[in-house]
Amino acid sequence: MTAVSKSAPGPGRSAKGSSLAPVSSSRKIKDRLVQGLVYAAFALAIIPLLSVLWTVITNGLARLDADFFAFSMNGVTARDGGGGAYHAIIGTLEQVAIATVISVPVAVLTAVYLIEYGAGSRLAKAISFFVDVMTGIPSIVAGLFVLAMWMLTLQIAPEGSGFAGALALSILMMPTVVRATEEMLKLVPGDLREASYALGVPRWRTICFVVLPTALTGILTGIMLAVARVMGETAPLLLTIFFTKAINFNPFDGPQGSLPTFIWDQVSNPQQTSLDRAWTGALVLILLIMLLNLGARLVARRFKPAAGR
């Protein structure tokens, strides 16, 4: 303690008697500088977001008319006005619906295995790890895989089909839904399960009728966000659904349209009429995605009180 008192002019002690001498200006400047940088970083991120939204909305409004939702591109060339994305919207909705139907049961069951059955086992660890890795698969690789397996090896609809596209999308959806479901199952209190077991209810019925319904809204939120994510995927669809300008309701036979590939196709032409359609396609796509995001938020909000305990 003597050392403390002898340690000559103490740190931060100003020459005058005041103990509350202001912090040295270099420290203050550094603090302010970092604050400025941090604010600037946020502003910098907002600029592209606003620019993207602004250009998509202003340019997209030009062709946001009834025709756009009522007609396909059949017989319409790049130079022509008119034409629409009816075929593409149909295709996107069908493909996303099929992808959801395929991926959700697998993903939810996988999550159930990870949380309720396999917890801690080596298999569960491996699955969990690869689910993480799967979230990082480039979307185009998912497309190549479906191309290589489904279309080139099994020779099913090698000329492209909406279903092949849906298969690729379902691979991209799976990990997201598994993770979301897992998080929700973890939130279900353990005593709820035990209460059910104590009544002699078999495990599978407990999971199906007690655990999953409790977590339902949370899982729904996760599914909606996953759908919103894959709805905008373009790359895997290029390799699997190919192109058509015409309406094709049948996802199992022949090329199908989709909103992302519609935009990709339209932007490849330099004509303004074509670019207008691309912008409007982008606007419709963003609106669909935002709607799903918003829906997911609303569902999540309803869930909150239950998760809060």
């Binding site: 069951l109 996988t110 309720e116 396999g118 699955i127 690789v141 998912a142 799976m174």
Partner: peptide, 28 residues
């Protein structure tokens, strides 16, 4: 029986995820 079927389905789904990852590598 229900338990067994359900557990197998859950486990199978998990294994399917592993199989997909393997299949991607194999087919490519």
């Amino acid at each position: 029986a229900g338990d067994r079927i359900f557990a197998a389905a859950a486990r199978g789904s998990g294994i399917l995820v592993l199989a997909i990852m393997a299949a991607i590598a194999v087919f490519l």
